[in-house]
Amino acid sequence: MEGQYSEKVMEHFRNPHNVGDMPDADGIGHVGNPVCGDIMELYIKVRDNIIVDAKFKTFGCGAAIATSSMVTDLVKGKTVDEALKVSNKAVAEALGGLPKIKMHCSVLAEEALRSAINDYFKKHPKK
């Protein structure tokens, strides 16, 4: 394996936070495809413009699962606008870094988050 995972990545991989479905989600993000080896689904629940809950389901490698876990942790409690500023670098840094070849997983996590927020905006147009 090119580059080893940090202890933080392994921690989130072993015991990922926020795994599961969210039938009453306010926004759903779906990114990736099986050819590149990663698919992420990210669900958010929003109350008064604050992300009160986030969950995910991920098909992918260790880094894909760890970044999904971390990004859902990071956005909980943030306003939607604050969450939009969470970058892939922030996710990777919070995990103590990622092997170079796995950086795309953090990009995917950022994209999944944006996709969920965009879906939320679409379903809840500002009045």
Partner: peptide, 10 residues
């Protein structure tokens, strides 16, 4: 099926 190999290996 439904899984990616590396997650199983780890």
């Amino acid at each position: 099926e439904f899984l990616e190999g590396e997650s199983i290996i780890l």
